[in-house]
Design a protein around this nucleic acid. Structure first.
Length: 507
DNA sequence: CTTCAGGTTGGCCCT
DNA sequence: CAGGGCCAACCTGAA
């Protein structure tokens, strides 16, 4: 029992609740904590890039306290890492596992990115991912609460473990700088959400102290256009694994204990369950981040309109609420969930009739918390392509923001060109008389764009187009076969009975 | 097989 | 100004 282990960090950039890292330390004499900077990381947005580097520095710092460093290679007998469910990662890990076995390297994978093992959830739901939140809850309730987080490694755990000294560590294996990745530090705004486990745990502590707020938390009642985030903004930390979802879950359980508190789906526990919902769906539904070949996704004849897409992406739609949100997204890397609703509906079924896949790509670049499964799932939700189907419920780019920000303070913050507009016209500056535009120092059509669509007209047309898309949905081919051929249906029900055998028992 | 309730978070107009 | 009815009628999952 004298292993030389590599622990491969990918997501899960933390020491707490890291079962794969703990497995690496078991009976281990030497450990190489490793992070491989993917060249494709260069394509990520500048905010995400900074967050990742910050998280790596923090991790390196914590490892040094344990007399270790981020590292590479040598006479390795064991490789450990956290399971990852994204299709490309699954592919990569399968190849790595094969390679490792060829070299007699033991491979240990642990589930610690999600609350539950998504494969098991799908199994418990008869091989299909739950397609409604209620269904997911029913399945999870039968499985019991999520596993408790494992403790962080201590100096005690490290006492018989060493990392070979490496003189040129910093030059050869140190965490690179922003510039080394070809990014311009001048082009990024102030760092509102610094990466790293320490900051994640600090933020968690800070919010968990607000017991009343935590117990009363109801997501739909938080504000999309608050000047300071009305929610925790722990999502970037959970996305990179700086914070364990299970740690968050159990901390909430501690706060809730003995108190009256809100419930899923709107509670903070509920927010973690929504994450679980989309993770599970993404594992069980092939081609989850695309329309074509995606069995749950309505096939819509989205238009290709590069100039409108660019206007949306670059905050030039002429709708201040939309443009302010897109500005915050680009500058800060985070926007409120309901703000995402507003801009996503606007891009897709509401106004521009542009594919949700385009929006998905923009969010992936700009969001610090751009999580593959959640991004794909929520874009399908908001575009009424899957999970949500009431496509006639269209967010108004004018009225929606007014509910929580009557005076348009949020708009004035992110679109300072409009800051002198009177409240009356802040959501619809094109309606202001010329004299008022002049007094505000902002002429619509010159200093700020005219609206690129007529929302009242286009949203009604789009509802009709959605209706058409839904009516064209082809019935499931296996079902229609069943209807034509009685035999086929019998076969299906036999399989059904076998899979439900256990449940049928007590009857 | 059919039926039916419910679906995290809408908008608008009316009282 | 809070709350109800209407819009137009979708889907999933349970019974």
């Amino acid at each position: 029992m004298s292993h030389i282990s590599i622990h491969w960090f990918r997501k899960g950039l933390r020491l707490h609740d890291n079962p794969a890292l703990m497995a690496a330390l078991q009976g281990c004499v030497e450990i190489y904590p490793l992070f491989v900077l993917d060249p494709s990381e260069k394509l990520a947005g500048i905010n995400s890039c900074r967050f990742l580097l910050g998280s790596l520095k923090d991790l390196d710092c914590s490892l040094q306290k344990l007399n270790s460093r981020l590292f590479q290679k040598w006479k390795v007998t064991r490789l450990t890492f956290e399971s990852d469910t994204e299709p490309d990662s699954v592919d990569r890990d399968r190849r790595v596992e094969k390679l490792a076995k060829e070299h007699d390297v033991e491979v240990i994978q642990k589930v610690s990115h999600t609350l539950y093992d998504t494969e098991r959830v799908i199994e418990k739901n008869n091989g299909k991912p739950p397609l409604t939140f209620n269904r997911l809850q029913t399945v999870l309730q039968a499985m019991g609460p999520p596993e408790k987080p494992v403790p962080s490694p201590s100096l005690e755990d490290m006492k018989s473990v060493q990392t070979t000294g490496w003189k040129k560590h910093e030059e050869e294996y140190g965490v690179p700088t922003f510039e080394e990745l070809g990014k311009d530090p001048q082009s990024v705004g102030s760092e509102l959400y610094p990466g790293g486990e320490q900051e994640a745990l600090r933020r968690l502590d800070e919010h968990m102290k607000r017991t009343g707020w935590v117990c009363n938390f109801q997501k739909p009642e938080t504000s999309p256009n608050a000047l300071n985030p009305s929610t925790t903004v722990l999502s970037p930390y959970i996305r990179y694994g700086c914070l364990s979802a299970r740690t968050f879950w159990w901390r909430l359980t501690d706060v809730y204990r003995g108190k009256k508190h809100s419930q899923p789906p709107v509670s903070l526990h509920g927010q973690l369950l929504w994450r679980e919902f989309f993770y599970t769906a993404s594992v069980g539904i092939p081609n989850f981040n695309r329309m074509k070949g995606n069995s749950v996704c309505v096939q819509v004849d989205w238009d290709s309109k590069p100039e409108l897409l660019a206007a949306w992406r670059e905050a030039r739609t002429g709708f201040p609420f939309i443009d302010a949100i897109m500005t915050q997204l680009r500058q800060e890397g985070w926007i409120h969930h309901l703000a995402r609703h507003a801009v996503a509906c606007f891009l897709t079924r509401g106004d521009l009739w542009i594919s949700w896949e385009e929006g998905q790509q923009v969010f992936e670049e700009l969001l610090l918390d751009g999580d593959w499964a959640l991004n794909a799932g929520n874009w399908q939700w908001l575009s009424a392509s899957a999970f949500f189907h009431q496509y006639f419920r269209v967010y108004s780019p004018i009225a929606f923001g007014k509910k929580t920000d009557k005076h348009g303070e949020y708009i004035k913050k992110y679109l300072p060109i409009l800051k002198k507009f009177p409240t009356e016209y802040i959501y619809e500056p094109w309606k202001a008389p010329r004299s008022i535009q002049e007094r505000a120092g902002c002429i619509v059509g010159k200093d700020y764009p005219c609206p690129i669509v007529n929302h009242e007209v286009i949203s009604k047309e789009n509802i009709k187009r959605m209706k058409l898309a839904y009516s064209k949905r082809s019935p499931d081919p296996s079902e229609s076969k069943g209807k034509v051929k009685g035999e086929k249906r019998k076969a299906v029900s036999v399989i059904d009975m076998l899979t439900k055998k256990k449940k049928a028992g007590p009857y």
